[in-house]
Design a protein around this nucleic acid. Structure first.
Lengths: 213, 213
DNA sequence: TATCAATTACGTATTAATACTTAATTTAAA
DNA sequence: TTTAAATTAAGTATTAATACGTAATTGATA
């Protein structure tokens, strides 16, 4: 049985090229082509006769872009697969698409063979991302985690160390020649920053980090 | 030059035996023999002419015993050596003597050769204890340390674990279906028992013991 | 069955910590 | 050189923890 495809791209040249590639394959039936996402949405909404297998879409399109379209499709149906093709590799876009369950992502400069392989893979139920895209996605995740990673300032480390060494706020203030209020601020900020409940949590963190033994 | 010895023992038989052994050795001069420690103390106090090298004394004697005598001698002089001979091997007595810097300890059933070796060793400036005595002493130390080793009860472990998990006293009380007062008691006892200053110390202990991670 | 360790509990007072807000000053970075 | 981050500080209110003392039960064990 033939697979029903929809293609959305506002660049006629790319659209034609893609169509020519797909025409060489006998088992793909192009149901509909669109210049932007809105047309696809309308088509999917109206069409209740034919089963839609895959929507291939560009990212940058007027009115409704590929990101929005992917999100919309995935909300509207859990059988329609999506393959996004794009000129650029913005980590944010890739991240958004993946978070919204896109089935594949390709660069527009991909070879004919890769296009066919991607479509085939996706229609078989698997995801398709080139190694490069996977790397970009993961790299982005790593960096985001790094950002999330709690970093204590020098002073904070100094204070939490003394806290874990069983000194009271007043004692620490005296040691560092600071106001008791200041140490209280640090204490409070550390509890918030490290997402713990009290002194016990601070102590555990300090031990984990090797600030005390 | 001959070494000057004093012997204190209220058992005539043992005293005679010891004297006969020492007479075979030409370089020992028996300055004085006594039936109990008091006599030795008096002799040492009055005597200012002769240098006293070694006092051999029994443990159990009337009036002033060997333990007291050793303590007294070591306080009075840092040149007089002491060798204690005893019938029994009480760890407490051995411990007391060693803590008070006794120079040697022998069982009364030791062989002639060991007596001579002990005296010789001590006069040369070294300590003399038989392997058996050393073992008794060390075993006693180990056991004492074991006693000192802090043991937490089941409940205490339970409570300190929850404390280190950042729960408050009230929360722990609710969890264990106990009064808040009870948990406060545990908290207080744990701080005293573990010799720490506060929650941080408790947490560190709990981590060290693996009660929390 | 007497005794000791363990568990449980209460009371009062004091001190320390936490919650919440705000903000001046200094230093580092864009 | 403006912005952002770090350091410093204060005030008020509430809650939690610590200090110190005391003691009734329960359970094990000698």
């Amino acid at each position: 049985m033939k697979h029903n495809l929809i293609i959305a791209d506002d660049h006629k040249m790319f659209l034609d090229g893609l169509l020519s590639i797909l025409k060489t394959e006998s088992n793909y039936n192009i149901l509909f082509t669109a210049k932007h996402g809105g047309h696809v949405q309308k088509y999917i909404t109206i069409n209740t006769e034919e089963k839609i297998d895959l929507v291939i879409t560009d990212v940058t399109m007027p009115e409704v872009d590929g990101i929005t379209l992917n999100k919309w499709i995935k909300k509207a149906s859990n059988s329609i697969k999506t393959l996004v093709v794009s000129m650029h590799n913005s980590p944010e876009i890739i991240d958004d698409l993946i978070e919204n369950n896109v089935d594949g992502y390709l660069q527009k400069n991909a070879q004919k063979e890769e296009f066919l392989k991607a479509i085939e893979t996706i229609l078989s139920g698997e995801k398709y991302f080139s190694k490069e895209i996977k790397d970009i996605y993961l790299q982005n995740k790593f960096e985001k985690n790094k950002e999330k990673e709690i970093k204590l300032t020098k002073r904070e480390v100094e204070v939490i160390s003394l806290i874990a060494e069983e000194f009271t706020t007043q004692e620490i203030a005296d040691k560092l020649f600071l106001s008791k209020h200041t140490i209280e601020s640090y204490r409070k900020n550390l509890i918030t920053k490290l997402n713990v409940r009290n002194l016990a949590g601070l102590t555990k963190y300090a031990i984990k980090k090797g600030y005390v033994s």
